[in-house]
Amino acid sequence: MQNSNPTLLSAADLPSRQSASKPVGGSIFDQPLALPDPFEASESDSDGELMEEPIDEQEIFDLIATISDPEHPIPLGELAVVSLRDISITAALPRSPASPLRKVTVLITPTITHCSLATVIGLGVRVRLEQSLPPRFRVDVRIKDGTHSTADEVNKQLADKERVAAALENGTLMGVIQKMLETCR
């Protein structure tokens, strides 16, 4: 069981829709004023309800790629622990694909096959997505097949709602997860 992972990727090479950061010393007055176009279609449908903005795999990647590794000050995206190709969004109710409920599946690839913090990384990704996504999304975070020596046990822990809830009540563990999420944009 070998991971091709310990390669570091450049943040500039990661896929992202997020805009580049502003130069230091810039002023809000240096930017042109953007006013809404009064003739542009509104964000509501004919019934007057707000339309749901679609969320895609790129947006999910942008949410989790900047989470820090718990052992190193390097983002998970740069470590290739998370990648765009390992994120999928599917209908949560396969028999009712028109339902707004969606399932987000994220496969994580630990940097080494015996990573002792794989569960913590999975919890960090799960917490970030559950805090960021609307309630119509169900989150499934798993270890990618063949990338970890105890993937079945880690996946069982990450899928068990009671275990996840108990882990999130642990103050020390939540401190580690909050530290991981400090770098999120």
Rank of each mutant, 00 (worst) to 15 (best):
L79Q: 09
D152P: 09
E40D: 11
N5Q: 11
R102P: 02
I89M: 04
L173R: 00
I108T: 02
T183L: 11
S99I: 07
S10R: 13
P38D: 05
I108G: 01
A165Q: 06
D56G: 04
A166Q: 13
R138I: 13
R138G: 13
I60H: 06
C184A: 15
G26A: 11
Q157C: 05
E71Q: 05
V154T: 04
P134A: 07
E57P: 04
S96P: 05
S68L: 09
A98F: 15
P70C: 08
D37I: 03
H114T: 11
F29I: 00
L181R: 04
K156H: 12
N5D: 09
F61K: 03
R163Y: 10
N3T: 11
D160G: 04
P134C: 00
I108L: 00
E43V: 04
C115E: 05
C184Q: 06
S96F: 14
P54G: 03
M51P: 04
S19Q: 11
M174C: 02
S42I: 10
L101T: 03
E153Y: 10
V24E: 13
S19P: 02
N3R: 06
D47Y: 14
I74T: 08
I143A: 01
V120K: 09
R142P: 02
I64E: 00
L181A: 09
I143K: 01
T147Y: 05
T109H: 07
S42T: 12
D30I: 01
P97Q: 02
P32G: 07
A91Y: 07
D62I: 08
R136A: 13
I28Y: 11
N155G: 04
L173S: 01
T7E: 11
R185D: 13
V127W: 01
A118V: 00
L35P: 00
D69K: 02
S149K: 14
L76A: 05
S21D: 14
P97K: 14
L168D: 11
S68F: 06
